[in-house]
Structures are given as structure tokens and as C-alpha cells.
Simulated assay, not measured.
Amino acid sequence: MANRTPNIDASTDQLKSDLEHLTNTLEELVNATADDSRSNIKEMRQRAEQRLKDTRANLEARGERLYGNARDNVREQADACDKYVHANPWTSIGIGAGVGVVIGMLIGRR
């Protein structure tokens, strides 16, 4: 789990960089609009649209990657739990019964 933190930090840094580039491009577009030069506005608009498409694609890719990592992590944990229950059935039954008693007592106090 310690090796995942650098990946998250790198992803966060990349996201910040993408958003900064998008902001800069949009600021250039606003500044170009003030000149009212039609060719300049068209060029800046195309750059802004391309930057927006790139940023959106990057965000979607990161979201899919994070979802996949979370799904894999949950699957690994579920598999480990399943193996433990199969290896130690009586211990698992005892833990389940103990948790049931505690929950029953908590509900009974209401």
C-alpha cells in the first residue's frame, strides 16, 4: 500500500498541471477576444477546445484507472477473507456469533 501513494501523488500533480494548462489557454482566449481580431479568436478557440478535450480525456482515463485499482483491491480483500473463512471455519463462526451478540445487545438497549 505504501507504493500506491507515489502513484496518487503523481496523478494529483498531473491533474493540477492539466488544469493549469487549461486555465492558461482559456485566459489567452479571453485576452484574444479583447483584441477582436477574428483570426486570433478562431485560433485561440481551437486551442482552448483541444486543451479541453485533452483534459477531459485525461480525467476520464484517471477515473477509470482509479476505479479499476479500487475494484482490484476490493476483490483481493474479498478473496483473502474467503480463503481465511475456508481455512478456519470454526473461528469464523465464532467471530460471526460474537459480532451478532454485540449487535443484538446494542439493539436491545434501545
Rank of each mutant, 00 (worst) to 15 (best):
R47P: 06
G63R: 13
S39Q: 09
G68L: 09
K53P: 00
S11G: 14
A48V: 09
V30H: 06
R109K: 07
K42Y: 10
D36N: 13
M44E: 15
P6H: 01
C81D: 05
N3A: 11
G96Q: 04
M44I: 06
N7A: 14
R4M: 12
R51L: 07
E43F: 13
K16R: 13
T33M: 12
C81P: 00
A80D: 08
R56P: 00
T25N: 06
N31T: 05
A70S: 10
V101I: 10
R51K: 15
N40A: 15
P89D: 01
N3Y: 13
R71E: 12
E64N: 14
K83Y: 02
N3H: 12
D9C: 05
V30G: 05
L26W: 10
P6F: 01
A48Q: 04
P6N: 02
N31K: 11
A78E: 07
Q14I: 06
A32W: 03
E76D: 13
H21L: 13
G63I: 04
A48S: 10
V85D: 01
H21M: 11
R65A: 15
E43T: 13
N24W: 05
K53I: 06
G63W: 08
I103F: 01
L15E: 05
P89K: 01
D82F: 08
R110E: 01
L52P: 03
D82E: 08
E20C: 07
Y67E: 14
R47V: 10
E76G: 06
D54K: 08
R65G: 10
A10H: 04
R47A: 15
K42H: 11
R47T: 12
E27N: 15
R51P: 05
P6D: 03
Q50P: 03
L66M: 13
Q50E: 11
R75C: 00
V74A: 10
D54M: 07
N40K: 15
S11D: 09
G94V: 02
R47W: 07
V85M: 03
N24M: 12
R4P: 00
N88V: 04
Y84C: 00
I41Q: 07
P6Q: 02
S11Q: 11
H86G: 00
P6I: 02
R38A: 09
D35Q: 11
A10V: 06
Q46H: 13
Q50M: 09
D72M: 04
V99K: 08
A2P: 00
M1L: 10
N3V: 08
N88G: 01
S92G: 13
N31H: 07
S39W: 03
T33E: 12
I95G: 04
R4F: 14
E27L: 15
N88R: 07
D18V: 04
I41L: 03
R75A: 09
